[in-house]
Design a protein around this nucleic acid. Structure first.
Ligand code: MN
Ligand code: MN
Ligand code: ZN
Ligand code: ZN
Lengths: 142, 142
DNA sequence: TATTAAATAAAAATAATTATCATTTAGGGG
DNA sequence: CCCCTAAATGATAATTATTTTTATTTAATA
């Protein structure tokens, strides 16, 4: 696993504690946090960092393909250090956003995309519904 | 085709010129407009309508299943009078958002959804890429 | 037609994001 | 290692999309 500083350098970015912190935070979570959540998570270790820097950092990262932005219909965008297109599930009860790796799906999409008069660059599939945990909890209380 | 006033009445909504105008506008377009666009489109015929009313109307409609909200990663939400889950293409060059009806895809998603520990309520597929028109124009200029 | 609860318009408030700008800092050259 | 400078940061203001508030108007129904 490449060191974060090295990755930033390769992208032509100056290596700053703030950028390292944001990128590492995203590498170490599957939560798909938004800017505010990232900011809060880093506050204890980086008490001087500002929210504006988080936003600007995420914007740079996005341009350079270090993160992807994800909007699942909330007020704010979420961010993901996994930049390859991949599907997500969104629980409409607890709000959890999870990755969904299904090679099968990807291949099918690719095939179908070929049949369209449309050059597909990225496909975003979001499944909205009730996650297993919430469904089980619902059953207990009924 | 049912009259708009009748549809609103059946949903338990008071029938107002503003609501009729918004719903008809959405029924007669495939553009997936946002609130601002709807407001501007209705301005000539409904010069006194306010943007807040458009927002509130869209919110009611959404709750009652008359429209669906769609976020393709822009600053604002788009709205669609086609409430059944269906895929969209988004041209990253001209910004056009189009419907994509592929029964094949829907069925495949359904089957895959069954295999997950997740109760799928709605699936949103967005294909980002270059539309046919833009691609042809790009080829001409090269 | 009179009543009234609900809807509207206008304006203020809020939330997310972006821009501005003075200060600080990373990183290359000496 | 220290200096220099362009770039990054933090603080704050501005912007944009959306929601809330409230006084006024209106649709529905008796
Ligand atoms: Mn993900
Ligand atoms: Mn549509
Ligand atoms: Zn859940
Ligand atoms: Zn296009």
């Amino acid at each position: 696993m490449k060191a974060t500083a090295q990755i930033l350098k390769e992208k032509g970015l100056k290596v700053t504690p703030q950028r390292i912190a944001v990128y590492n935070m995203l590498l170490n979570t599957t939560e798909h946090p938004n800017a505010e959540t990232i900011y809060k998570a880093l506050e204890p270790t980086n008490p001087t960092m500002s929210l504006a820097t988080v936003y600007k950092t995420l914007d740079y990262f996005k341009q350079l393909g270090l993160v992807q932005e994800l909007n699942v219909g909330e007020g704010s965008s979420r961010y993901d250090a996994v930049v390859k297109c991949h599907p997500h599930t969104v629980c409409i009860q607890c709000g959890k956003v999870r990755d969904l790796y299904l090679e099968e799906l990807t291949e099918i999409h690719k095939k179908i995309a070929e049949e369209l008069d449309f050059e597909v660059r990225c496909e975003q599939l979001i499944l909205y519904g009730i996650c297993g945990k919430c469904r089980r909890e619902n059953n207990e209380n009924s």
